[in-house]
Amino acid sequence: MKNLIGLDQNKVKVLSGKLNTLLANYQLFYQNLRGFHWNIKGRDFFELHAKFEEYYDDAVIKIDEIAERILTLETEPLHTFSDYLEKSSIEETKGISNGIQAVEVVVNNFSTLISIEREILALAGDANDEGTVSLMSDYISETEKTLWMLNSYLK
Rank of each mutant, 00 (worst) to 15 (best):
G42R: 05
D44E: 14
N20H: 08
L85D: 12
K41I: 04
L23D: 00
V103Y: 01
G6T: 04
S111R: 11
Q31R: 08
F29V: 02
Q27L: 14
L7Q: 02
D83M: 14
L121V: 05
N128C: 06
L19D: 10
L28R: 02
L71V: 09
E142C: 04
V103L: 07
R34Q: 07
V14K: 15
G35R: 08
N32C: 06
K11F: 03
D44R: 12
I40C: 07
D83T: 13
K51Y: 12
R69F: 07
Y26M: 08
R34E: 08
E86G: 05
E76H: 14
F29Q: 10
I114K: 04
W38G: 09
F45R: 10
T80Y: 12
D57S: 14
Y139C: 02
L113I: 08
K11P: 04
T75A: 12
P77K: 06
T93F: 11
K11D: 04
S111N: 11
T75L: 11
D8L: 05
R118Q: 09
T93D: 11
N98E: 15
D44Q: 14
R118Y: 01
I114P: 03
E53S: 11
V107K: 03
L123S: 08
F36C: 04
L147M: 10
T72N: 01
L22A: 12
F45H: 13
N108K: 15
H37F: 12
E68I: 04
N108C: 06
N128D: 13
N151H: 15
E47C: 03
L23E: 00
G35E: 00
L48I: 04
I63S: 00
K18I: 01
S89W: 04
T132V: 01
I96K: 10
L33T: 06
N128G: 02
L33Y: 00
Y30F: 07
T132G: 00
N32Q: 03
D126N: 12
Y84V: 06
I96G: 03
Q101F: 11
V14T: 15
K62W: 10
F29W: 07
V106A: 03
T72F: 09
D8A: 00
D83N: 14
Q9K: 15
E47W: 01
N32W: 02
F110R: 04
V12P: 01
L113E: 09
L23T: 07
D138R: 07
V133G: 03
N20A: 03
I66K: 09
F36P: 05
K13S: 14
N109P: 02
A59E: 08
G17D: 12
L154Q: 14
I100Y: 15
Q27M: 15
E54T: 11
K145C: 01
S141Q: 11
N151K: 15
A122M: 13
V105K: 13
N25M: 13
L78M: 03
S97D: 15
A59M: 00
M149F: 12
K155C: 12
A122W: 13
E86T: 13
S152I: 08
I40L: 03
T80G: 02
I70Y: 08
H37S: 11
A59W: 10
E74D: 11
A67D: 09
V106Y: 03
S115H: 14
G131Y: 09
E74K: 05
K13W: 10
L22D: 02
H37T: 11
M136Y: 02
N20P: 01
A122Y: 14
F29S: 05
